[in-house]
Amino acid sequence: MRKVFIDCPQNIPCNPCQFCCPTSAITIGEDITNPPQVNLEKCIGCGRCVAACPGQACFLVDTEFHPGIASVDFPYEYLPLPTAGMRVQAQDNCGAVLCTGLVVAVVAAKAGDHTPVVRLSVPREFAYQVRSIAHLPAE
């Protein structure tokens, strides 16, 4: 099952993740420079936080997507957008290519306010390292 994974390393004043979560799985609290606390049992993997986070620090990871294969959802605000079925280069937080990933879906929900979310399937060992993909050449 898809669960949120947050990479928010500093105490910065920000709390949209808490307010967009429909199940209160993410908590910041009174002091908005607190880092987010996640209750994975409450997380339903809806992905609203992935598009809502201004820091693009929220991801969904499903380590049981297929045997040996994980899925990772991440925000992607560049054109051209990838499309389902494409094979793309999955990158880590420093832009290094980790592996080839298969685009499972690209969702541009209205609630995401122009932040499309890409779901990529990758070998399970990279599940928690994938942050984005190599930008696609302009059409």
Binding site: P13, Q18, F19, I32, A52, P54, D113, H114
Partner: peptide
């Protein structure tokens, strides 16, 4: 999308 708290319109562009 802006940082800050919900009362300061955080999350909006």
């Amino acid at each position: 999308k802006f940082f800050g708290s919900q009362t300061h319109y955080a999350g909006q562009r």
